[in-house]
Design a protein around this nucleic acid. Structure first.
Length: 579
RNA sequence: GAAGGCGUAGCUCAGUCGGUAGAGCAACGGACUUUUAAUCCGUAGGUCGUGGGUUCGAGCCCCACCGCCUUCACCA
């Protein structure tokens, strides 16, 4: 809390300044800097955030000098409304075929990406969100004032251009500039023009730079948006209703994870950031919203690595009067529709330069299964491909356990022996074996450990793993003919767990009992059995039998964009603050 | 949390055995009216992540710390 109020103290005076310093030619930059230094000086030295601008370095100073020249020429270096400009991709098509003849008059706006000189000619490559184009400026055709203005342009500046479409002698599509406008003076030196920036930390801390200068980053992030849009479309077209439920929870339930702690001052109560969407959505189902979903951020206070960010995006959907079989069908639909969107986008995935590579690769490999698959539904993944063509296999947990572990999961002695074997091979922690030998651990927990070590990585998929040991699933309905088995499935693709679904438990008394009984061998924080009275009360009112499904959106985007790190699909992943 | 790797100019990177800190791009000045990472000539630019230590002398060796990456651990 202290940190928050501290940073607000920094921010307020500066934001106020920004309001005062409305662009007034000539005095504009002076006003900014007066204000800036004023607020700066009022801060005690220890309050100064390290990330805030320090005194300008030599490169920044060179740009400030140019900014001042721009002001002296009577231009606002930070521009203003710039109307009726066209997208760069749209004007490219208007270029005359023959070089040296003027085409249509156009107006564009964008960022200077490259600059070249040839005598009294200046070439700028200007890019907007649709593409880039060359702007040609001729000393002989522009007035003194315009030439003076463009001489103050640097890489990274945002400019507007009025001109006519023009093809150069070498055939390059260009705009022959008639009039130039400065729209925003960049004070920061861009990365090296050929190699770009490659330091991962630099790119993550300055994602804006990454988006501008690293090939493919913006396309991939925008593809994320399209994928999420597709998920919404799929659900909406099936009459599911999107809602928003609280992020601040008094009890962080619905999943087994450690929450972030926070505090409400006026109420003076502890609160938690949600770790799942589940319980509120079920309460809405009780309230009569029979098909309901939410796509939202959840927070888990755990480790950070290539597949885990402390905050991530989860989609949870509930369908009254359905069950987990209905959820398997829905999962296939949601993912397949998203795959189609990715295929249609034509955005190149991270490591295959050519979007059609997966098909050619499959044929070249001569794999009969791959060559007969629907090429529309394959996407590249690392060195291979993922075939999303439905229907995906649906195998039971017990079946897969038998297949990969070589023994029945009901054979406790054999399972224990297997666990020890895996520990010797370094695939299961020795501590777990010690606990297994010395304390009483539920047999299903041991089975779960062996399953994770032997089966999960081997699941190429997409494959639905269904019918989990019931004791691992306190929010799930048991099978009618076998109460030791829960109607739950997980979707695995290349060892990654993408979806998790249940036939939801709607018996309030059984639910309360499951919350109450702590599973032997599990710490409380590792269990989902957190008593939530509001939720139990809702179940007493009566929740329809239902199917429920959760999909990790970030992981879905990773799989569909061939991204190995979750940081490649989140704009601002959490980093330790710089000191 | 553990092990390994990395941190040098705004950016991308060299830096030999411990002996004056290097290049390309970018910047600045100049030449060039059809360039495509333009080219050519010149100038300037460094708290070698931070702090200690060893040494006549440390970017380099040692210790601690900070950050990032990889693998592992944790992780519905």
């Amino acid at each position: 809390m202290r940190n928050v109020s501290k940073s607000r103290r920094h921010r307020q005076p500066r934001e106020r300044c920004r309001g005062v310093a409305t662009p007034r030619r000539l005095t504009h930059d002076a006003a900014v800097f007066d204000c800036f230094f004023l607020s700066w000086a009022t801060l005690r030295p220890t309050d100064r955030p390290m990330s805030s601008p320090q005194k300008p370095d030599r490169l920044e100073q060179a740009r400030i000098d140019k900014l001042e020249k721009i002001v002296a020429l009577g231009h606002d270096p930070y521009g203003g409304r710039f109307e009726n400009h066209a997208s760069i991709s749209s004007v490219r098509g208007k270029c005359p075929e023959a070089s040296g003849t003027p085409g249509d008059a156009v107006r564009i706006a964008g960022r200077i990406m490259l600059r070249r000189k040839a005598g009294k000619l200046r070439f700028f490559d200007v890019a907007d969100s649709s593409g880039s184009i060359q702007v040609l400026c001729s000393r002989g055709d522009l007035g003194e004032e315009q030439w003076e203005l463009l001489s103050q342009f640097d890489l990274g500046d945002l400019i507007g251009v009025d001109g006519k479409m023009w093809r150069t002698d070498s055939g390059e599509v260009s705009i022959f500039a008639d009039r130039l406008h400065i729209l925003s003076k960049s004070l920061a030196q861009p990365p090296e023009k050929f190699h770009g920036a490659s330091d991962v930390e630099l790119l993550l801390r300055h994602r804006s730079l990454d988006l501008i200068y690293t090939e493919g980053v913006r396309d991939r992030m925008l593809l994320r948006t399209k994928i999420i849009q597709s998920v919404r479309n799929t659900l909406n077209s099936r009459d599911f209703v999107e809602v928003e439920t609280p992020v601040l929870h008094a009890v962080a339930g619905g999943a087994a994870a450690r929450p972030f702690n926070t505090h409400h001052n006026a109420l003076d109560i502890p609160l938690f950031l949600r770790i799942a969407l589940e319980l509120h959505l079920k309460r809405l189902m009780v309230g009569g919203i029979e098909r309901v979903y939410e796509i939202g951020r959840v927070f888990r206070n755990e480790g950070i690595d290539a597949t885990h960010n402390p905050e991530f995006t989860m989609m949870e959907v509930y369908q009254a009067y359905g069950d987990y079989n209905a959820m398997m069908d829905l999962t296939e639909a949601v993912v397949v529709e998203a795959v189609k969107v990715v295929k249609e986008s034509g955005v190149r995935s991270q490591e295959s330069g050519d979007p059609s590579r997966d098909r050619e690769g499959a044929e070249a490999a001569g794999d009969s299964r791959l060559s007969t698959l629907n090429p529309q539904l394959t996407l590249p993944w690392k060195d291979s491909t993922i075939d999303f063509t439905p229907p995906w296999p649906r195998k039971t947990y017990a079946e897969l356990f038998r297949e990969h572990a070589g023994c029945e999961m009901s054979d406790q002695a054999a399972v224990r022996a297997k666990a020890k074997e895996l520990a010797a091979a370094g695939k299961i922690k020795h501590e777990f074996i010690q606990r297994m030998e010395t304390t009483e651990i539920h047999p299903d927990v041991i089975v779960g450990e062996v399953f994770e070590a032997m089966v999960e990585d081997a699941l190429i998929g997409p494959i639905f793993v269904k019918d989990y040991p019931a004791s691992l699933c306190p929010l799930t309905k048991r099978k009618k003919d076998d109460p030791t088995v829960a109607e739950r499935f997980e979707l695995f693709i290349h060892g990654m767990e993408l979806a998790n679904a249940y036939t939801e438990l709607n018996d309030p008394r059984l639910q309360e009992e499951l919350f109450r009984t702590q599973l032997a061998g599990l710490a409380e924080e590792d269990s989902m059995a957190k008593m939530d009275r509001e939720f139990l009360q809702a179940l007493k009112i009566g929740m329809p039998p239902a199917g429920g499904l959760g999909i990790g959106i970030d992981r879905l985007v990773m799989l569909l964009t061939n991204s190995r790190s979750i940081r490649d699909v989140i704009f601002f992943p959490l980093l330790r603050p710089e000191r």
